[in-house]
Simulated assay, not measured.
Amino acid sequence: MTEGIGDPVPGGWRGWAALLAEGLGEEGQRVEFRNLAVAGALSADVHERQAAAAVRFRPDLASVVVGVNDTLRRSFDIHRLAVRLDEVCALLAGRGAVLLTACLPDPGTALGLPGPLRRPLARRQAAVNAVVHALSARYDTVHLHASDRDWTDDRSLWSVDRLHPAERGHRRLAAGFHLLLAERGLACGAPPDPEPGQPPPSRLAGALWLATEGTGWLARRSTDLLPQLLGLAAAEACHWARGTAERLDDRAEGALRQALGDLPRSPLLHGSVPRARMEG
């Protein structure tokens, strides 16, 4: 999402972070923006590669928006994700960066999957969002709520794959962060225009994308997530038939409590630094 998929511009993608960077500084003030995001990245990728590169850039603002891809992997583990994100936030905040975080919609709802397939993914994303909420309080981040129903119900916000925002969605994310940053005195420029600058893709373009890129995405997930997801869906259906679905919720909540309880008691503190650069 932060790479900008769904918001095409000549030569590649733009996305919410680039749109936000344009409105950070006053007129004539230089703002340096660097986007290290990569489509499909997991929390492990951010932890093991992107965070170190971000620290070398010495950003004043750093976005840590990740987690949905983790929910789409067979290896999903809320404990490992919490540890990784806490260490990433500690590293960047410890170097003086103000962090940007967001809770996001679950992919099952965004894709319109049936209940037995949707609920396991929703449970995973709810756990991710709970971790992000806890870290946003822990590190005093600029936190954007982007998981409400008005996000998933408004199709104009989403690209044809239903997983990445369309240009309108990217602009809404950028405007939301801009408002929150302005309230802290960290955004002095004009907010992003909420209206798209280009027409949405035609139905033909959308169909072509689904037949090429979308098919490849589904094929990759079919060898990773799909076998496990079918098992989770079968367990979901069985518990619902028996009236014991709350056991699945209790199990997920227990894993989440354990993950949050195992985080270090004292996070790193960070001081203020001049606001001029933004890391996406």
Rank of each mutant, 00 (worst) to 15 (best):
G189P: 07
L204V: 14
T215N: 11
S202I: 02
E213R: 15
T215A: 15
P201F: 06
L181Y: 07
G197N: 11
Q198I: 09
E195L: 12
P201I: 03
H170F: 06
L180R: 15
A182C: 07
L210N: 10
E195Q: 12
A207S: 13
P199G: 05
G214I: 06
E195I: 03
P200G: 02
A205D: 11
R203C: 10
A190G: 11
E183G: 12
G176D: 00
T212L: 14
G169A: 04
P191C: 10
P201C: 09
C188F: 10
G214H: 10
P200R: 05
L204I: 13
L173S: 07
E195W: 05
G197V: 10
P201N: 07
G189R: 06
G189K: 06
L179P: 00
C188K: 15
P196A: 02
G197Q: 11
E213S: 14
A190E: 15
P191K: 07
L210Q: 13
A187S: 09
A205V: 09
P200S: 03
W209E: 03
P201E: 05
L186F: 10
P194S: 03
P199E: 05
R172P: 00
R172A: 14
E213F: 11
A190V: 14
A174M: 07
H178P: 08
E183W: 09
A182N: 04
P199V: 01
F177L: 10
E183Q: 15
T212K: 11
L173Y: 13
G197H: 09
L173A: 11
G176Y: 05
P194H: 05
P191E: 08
A182Q: 12
P194Y: 02
A211W: 11
A211R: 15
C188V: 10
R171P: 02
P191Q: 08
G169K: 01
G214N: 06
